[in-house]
Design a binder for these strands. Structure first.
Lengths: 320, 320
DNA sequence: CTGAAAGCGCTTACAG
DNA sequence: CTGAAAGCGCTTACAG
């Protein structure tokens, strides 16, 4: 490995001069070109770990994602990455595979490896114990005072419900994901409020997981009764499960049953029929979160905690 | 930040002793317990970047993924992560968003940050220039001598084709993904060989991308002619596009048209109808790749290059 | 504008 | 078994 010393020797300058060249300090044109040449001749690449140790900054932030299988996340990741890339900051992606017990370990690991900030879409029990700037993404812990960004899920729940009501439905079932998930309970809140305001009785079932199989299983179960004319699913994956269950039971969609999802994952536009859904601004969520960590990490860390909520958007397609 | 010096002072020992405690060297029980206590009292966390600089090892490997939107990858990532976790090695995930120009930058960045090895599912122009142990995953560059692991795609192509032939099809269209993708061209090879052996004329169309929209668009186009009785798609996403196009044209599946996919992504089991496909052993691919880098990085780096091919598996479901 | 020196937080021979 | 010291590859005052 060639180091800054090798470059200095080759260019016949001091190592401090090479360092200045690398980091932009005063340096004469004469030496500048000698250093540049030496760097090329030696194919020098700076050792970022040494740099990190010396400066106390790594120009990297960690991004922790709970579940790569959920197509909700790639858009977010993309938003974070582009924003960080523009700022010359690397993003270290880590994922916790929905194992609550892993998130603390993963975050500690990232911190020990010197990240300057952290974005977490995995829930933390104790966010304030994190020693670097942190922004919670999507899974906001209601109680603690941390920077956070998420979609306005109450509004999202209301949008979905209002739309179904406007289509004349009144037996609308909300098939929520796990309610310990803040987003899910917020959507439920929006749903309930909208239903009650309209004078109808809210009804909901709590799914154990946010996935296809769960939506499918629950729908199969409760479509037997035949009361429901519309289902608002906790997310798109569950909605897709509902659609499949309904189709297998010979129900017409949206004739016999209307289905509306939540998230607006790419796939939802491509199924048959395509899914009507409430879309979260994934890319924007990521971008916003990244902007916030970058600011905290590199501009100004002390300030009151900031909570951003982005607006969801109804996508009317084939299922409702 | 509390350092090893603080711990040493608190425990009234030398810093070397603390280091030995951390890394397992000779140390008396007496001092061992004093150090342990000090570590707890001070809530000491080792600075891994300092450790890396000192040892020249980071206990981390990089994993570069071309496209997080493709559900083919999460299974692989999972396999890599579990294997590395068991070995006490962190995996730094990076993704190149299908931008060829980013992969070199991403890899350099990872190396500069001290990874001990690298697994890349993104294609590299010049793999031999990588200065740490490297294993190519899935996208194997045919020419250069690098460790690699992938599915036996020739066999995969044959399996799909053989199955369709056994069902009596003879006008089987292979809708490949981009043929510069080695996997795609290998599947084509298996398909052609099988067709020719059976005495039928192979026919294929090259899709520009491995995605839903591409499968949909091409299918819409070529199903007009009405010659084809079966389509073997380059991957599951494309196959799903084909299914949708066919359904919109009023074709019965598999009655009027049989469709078979490739990859075996989770979703393929959950669509309506569920997709018949040739499954790649995603988890195993990741596990195998991880095992190989770990070996190269921590056991024995010099050896002839190793190329592993894993066996694909036919999953008979609803579309063929 | 420039170089020698100290320091970032560890590890690892080396001499006890 | 243990501690002082040198070193990993950088950066950053400091004195010129």
């Amino acid at each position: 490995m060639t180091t800054i010393r090798d470059v200095a020797r080759q260019a016949e300058v001091g190592v401090a001069t090479v360092s200045r060249f690398l980091n932009g300090g005063y340096i004469s044109d004469e030496k500048k070109s000698r250093v540049l040449r030496a760097i090329h001749e030696l194919d020098f690449r700076i050792n970022e770990v040494a740099r990190s140790l010396s400066t106390g900054r790594s120009k990297a932030v960690g991004l922790v994602i709970p579940d790569l299988n959920n197509p909700f996340f790639p858009g977010i990741i993309h938003g974070v990455e582009e924003t960080c890339e523009n700022a010359g900051v690397m993003v270290m992606l880590a994922h916790t595979a929905e194992r609550e017990d892993r998130v603390e370990a993963v975050i500690n690991n990232l911190i020990q490896r010197g990240v300057d900030g952290l974005i977490s879409a995995s829930g933390l029990e104790n966010p304030s114990s994190v020693s670097v700037p942190l922004v919670m993404l999507d899974r906001v812990n209601g109680t603690s005072a941390v920077d956070s960004v998420r979609t306005d899920h109450v509004q999202g729940g209301m949008i979905a419900t209002r739309y179904l009501l406007s289509k004349g439905h009144r037996d609308i079932l909300f098939l929520s994901g796990p309610l310990q998930n803040t987003g899910a309970s917020l959507r439920l809140q929006g749903y309930r409020q909208m239903m009650e305001d309209a004078g109808f009785r809210p009804q909901w079932i709590e799914g154990k997981r946010f996935d296809f199989a769960e939506g499918y299983a629950i729908a199969l179960e409760c479509l037997k009764q035949g009361e429901t004319s519309a289902i608002f699913a906790g997310n798109d994956l569950m909605a897709l499960g509902v659609v499949r269950a309904a189709m297998e039971m010979g129900l017409q969609i949206p004739g016999d049953l209307s289905v509306i999802g939540y998230d607006g994952i790419d796939l939802s536009a491509h199924t048959t029929p395509s899914l009507t859904t409430v879309a979260q601004p994934m890319y924007e969520l990521g971008k916003q979160a990244a902007t916030m960590v970058l600011f905290r990490a590199y501009e100004e860390s002390k300030r009151v905690c900031e909570r951003v909520e982005l607006t969801p958007k109804l996508l009317i397609r084939g299922t409702a």
